[in-house]
Design a protein around this nucleic acid. Sequence first.
DNA 1: CCAAAAGTGTTCAGGCTACACCCATGT
DNA 2: ACATGGGTGTAGCCTGAACACTTTTGG
Lengths: 229, 229
Amino acid sequence: MPHQYEFPRAALTVDAVVFGFDEAELKVLLIKRGLAPFKGRWALPGGFVRVQETLDDAVRRELEEETGLHQVYLEQLYTFGEVKRDPRERVVSVAYYALVKMADHSTRAATDASDAQWFPVAATPPLAFDHATILQTGLERLRGKLRYQPIGFELLPEKFTLSQLQHLYETVLGTAIDKRNFRKKVLGFDLLEALDETNRDGPHRPAQLHRFNPAKYERLKKRGFLFEL
Amino acid sequence: MPHQYEFPRAALTVDAVVFGFDEAELKVLLIKRGLAPFKGRWALPGGFVRVQETLDDAVRRELEEETGLHQVYLEQLYTFGEVKRDPRERVVSVAYYALVKMADHSTRAATDASDAQWFPVAATPPLAFDHATILQTGLERLRGKLRYQPIGFELLPEKFTLSQLQHLYETVLGTAIDKRNFRKKVLGFDLLEALDETNRDGPHRPAQLHRFNPAKYERLKKRGFLFEL
DNA sequence: CCAAAAGTGTTCAGGCTACACCCATGT
DNA sequence: ACATGGGTGTAGCCTGAACACTTTTGG
């Protein structure tokens, strides 16, 4: 039996800007829409919020359903409420952004010929609804946060080299960084554990692998420590 | 005639954390609820979003209706979507925070014996719903933003002294600041115009009045300038 | 042995911190 | 005259920026 309300209500959705990094470029995960409106267009993963689930639950469910991703870093981004953003009816969308370790997670996007696919952020196809705006907002937020919170690690494999980390920063922030200064500063935080492992991946000296220690960061944060790059 | 939907929908509200500063304390504007639930309790101003208005429009309308405030600095804060945050039914609330020049605006809270009233942020009464959480979130955001964006001026009168500005920073951030260093830095930004006026308000030397120049800030921001205190 | 990325210290300049006294006014 | 907040300069320290060569490996 249909539900009745005295006044018309906006519908509520969640959408996620899922970022990944593949050692060369920043990428975003998009879904090809199977239904109208914007049928056949690419869009951010997302969908309607059920009446008995929190917003966070809704994003996680949609991500799992549409992309196979789970246990990713998630943070609320902004809520988009323009009246005409959905041509059908009034739809308010709570946008999140997610950071994914592309190398570790084997997303559905990689495996089958599905309707989920990674695109370079710098070269996305036209997007449905106002998703280009949402993506842009997510990108700005990522750039802002990367500088003063240790979230870059969420885009790298569990074990990574300092060069990988530096390339990530250079790519996302769009600036060149001095190698020696970068290492000095990052290691100075004492948040990385140097492992007894190296990666051997080419005709050059192997690089020492490191791992981020989140527990240590939490402890330092409570003492008023500030991460900043 | 009532509206029908195939699935039950969450209701959508907006709430605003309205901050003011009265030269001594940081304050927040609260409304005494006239209706159940939480009848008689204090709550953040806010209300239901109409199906034909944007979220921003909804906050501004509610602020005007409930507190008489208009033309305040407004920014979206966070969207709260816990399932049980409203005991009646599922209600998702998009929270905003607002900064008000208490001295300039004569709010309804000041004038009549209304149900709107300013409280010190440090000593609020028990709040309805999850509004204590929202207030806390707003406070953290204000503290964060104050340091790297010139929004403190939104809490001061159009013309203010450097001491007023410093006291604002000290109060909100909860730290003592060296007078000479503060003035050097603030004036160094070249965003304040010294006026040919002083305020005379006690048995001591009158202070020079200043005015913030937003246009200048916009110009500098485009050139990659960073405000930071 | 050559190409390619990893790794490593020092110097300099500019910004931040700490700090103490005189000034203008009202009572 | 005194109490009260307004206003001002400098010196040491520390942090951030610039900068070049050696090391280790694969081919």
